[in-house]
Write a protein that binds this DNA or RNA. Structure first.
Lengths: 201, 201
DNA sequence: GTCTATAGCTGGATAGAC
DNA sequence: GTCTATCCAGCTATAGAC
């Protein structure tokens, strides 16, 4: 239950492209997309101003590549989490644990995709919106299975699914690495909290 | 329970200052602080570029004034909500209802203060951080009173208070006015959800 | 593939007429 | 108090040397 999808960025090569991507995540998370200059990014990667454009055509493309990698990591994490569960309560517990812990572990990357996606152009935004819909539908399906089986007691199914998702996503807003709880502790607490929200004793 | 603090902006005079402030809230919410130009703001208020500086010394000051007014509105809304409650469950229900509904009703203003406060200078940021601490402490105190009285069953008091606050705040991220639920319906559902999270049957 | 230098544009803020 | 015109700093992206 404490596993993750490994390093989200290992597939990015060459190493200079990855350094630029990581510097962009840090700066976008801290200053926002529009508050970040290409010089912030190249300086963060230890390069000079012009070096960015050898690896990425525009600053906007950098944001898009980040969004693709991040949503892919989330989807794989959630699929791995539910795969092990044998019944709805177990599966939803694992889902909530994994989703919450992911948002703590990757809070910088998560902040970027929660706050800065408005800077994407229309067709890039549509592509990312599709990935995000798949996350929502997965959570709704798992909660719905538990409602159908009688394991959960929910009067408002979409509302309850939204509450679980909201709780996990918002971890990236308030989480601080130096805070009192580890990502795993947050995952465990929110898995328990999810069962209460769903009326599963 | 459906009351609010009235119009958050009525105290802003003259009317031209208020128009600029409202245009700034809309643009900051949609494009972010750094993505918003002073020309966006003045155009949104139906004025020309230079007119802003008659009413506000800088663009940053506009953000600060918004943050002050918004946090004042939240604090007044929460105090009014708990004032009517006679016991911890009633008080926390009213608090959660009011806090959630406020974030739906004022989702644009709320997005600005959740996402754009990083653009404030150090002393302005410190002043706003103080107001935000008062909100957190109020929620913690109300939940703590219910734990102490035995009305709630919580193993992790700060964690549970954080979950309630997180759930209500995140409403401003996903809420859409054209969506299926009204602010009051969201408030009612989240007041009920809070009781489940707190183990108050 | 990285550097320096710079083109071309947009932004925040100011000046001065009305 | 609002307008138009403008200053100049900072931005994205490109050019050309190495």
């Amino acid at each position: 239950m404490t596993e993750d999808t490994g390093d989200m960025w290992v597939t990015v090569t060459p190493e200079a492209s990855r350094r630029l991507l990581l510097a962009a995540v840090d700066s976008f998370a801290e200053r926002g997309y529009h508050g970040t200059s290409t010089r912030h990014i190249t300086a963060g990667a230890g390069m000079s101003a012009g070096a960015l454009y050898v690896h990425y055509p525009t600053k906007a493309d950098l944001l898009f590549q980040i969004a693709l990698l991040v949503h892919d990591s989330v989807l794989r994490t959630l699929h791995e989490a539910v795969a092990a569960g044998t019944g709805p309560p177990q599966r939803v517990r694992a889902l909530m644990y994994a989703f919450s812990a992911w948002h703590a572990r990757h809070h910088r990357a998560a902040r970027v995709i929660q706050n800065e996606l408005g800077a994407l152009g229309p067709e890039h935004a549509a592509q990312i919106a599709d990935l995000r819909r798949r996350v929502r539908e997965m959570i709704l399906a798992e909660v719905g299975a538990g409602a159908a089986s009688g394991d959960f007691d929910v009067a408002d199914l979409p509302g309850a699914a939204r509450a679980l998702s909201s709780l996990a996503i918002d971890v990236c807003r308030w989480y601080r690495p130096e805070g009192p709880r580890t990502p795993d502790e947050i995952g465990a607490f929110y898995a328990h909290t999810a069962m209460r929200i769903l009326g599963a004793g």
